[in-house]
Amino acid sequence: MSCPAGPVARGERGSALVELLGGTIVLLVPLVYLVLTLVQVQGAQLAATGAARDAARLVATADPELWSSLTAAAVELAFADQGLVVDGSRAVTIVCQRDCGPGDRVVVTVRAAVALPFLPEGAGYTAEGDAWGTIDPHREHP
């Protein structure tokens, strides 16, 4: 008497489970890595854009002697909110339209290298954000 589902070939028992597990690993591992990488890149880009905006506000309102320390702290804080460590003093570039006097337009660019998960130190993503502001026109010019 034979089984109602039909005869089972010898050596084929349980291979569907092995194929399912193998296929799942082959597809799931790259998918998880892609999601981790996209989260890291998105967080870095969000931090760079927010840091540039905050740094431009600081430059527009703070004393020129304090610009470098304040903008470096703002950049480090913005990246720390995303769980990333960046040297704020090397990541910020401040360019004034003329002489950085009252009423002058200033452009702040934040550029920071961010390591991607499970990759060596040199392989990463460079997050970049820029913002502009106008230096307070009622401030005294030094």
Rank of each mutant, 00 (worst) to 15 (best):
W67H: 14
G14D: 13
S69D: 15
T134L: 15
G23L: 09
P120F: 07
A113R: 05
G23M: 10
S89L: 11
V114L: 06
P64S: 13
A73E: 15
L27Y: 09
A56H: 10
D81F: 05
L21H: 01
W132K: 01
L77V: 02
G133S: 14
V85I: 13
T61E: 13
V32I: 14
L27S: 09
L46G: 09
E128C: 00
G122N: 08
A51E: 04
G101F: 06
A5D: 02
G129P: 10
A73W: 09
A112I: 03
T24F: 13
E76Y: 06
A72C: 03
D81W: 03
L20V: 07
R57K: 11
L20M: 11
A56R: 09
V35K: 02
G43L: 07
V32F: 15
T49C: 03
L77E: 13
W67F: 12
L66H: 10
T93Q: 15
R98P: 00
A62P: 03
L17C: 05
V35Q: 06
A48G: 08
R98A: 13
A91L: 05
R90V: 06
L36R: 13
A78K: 02
I135N: 02
E128I: 01
A44N: 04
P142I: 01
V92K: 01
Q97M: 12
S15L: 15
E76R: 05
I94S: 04
L17Y: 01
A72E: 07
V29D: 10
A60G: 12
Q40F: 05
T24V: 08
T134F: 14
S89M: 10
T71R: 03
A56Q: 10
P117K: 05
E128V: 04
P64D: 15
G101A: 09
I25M: 12
V8C: 01
D99I: 04
L116A: 05
Q40C: 14
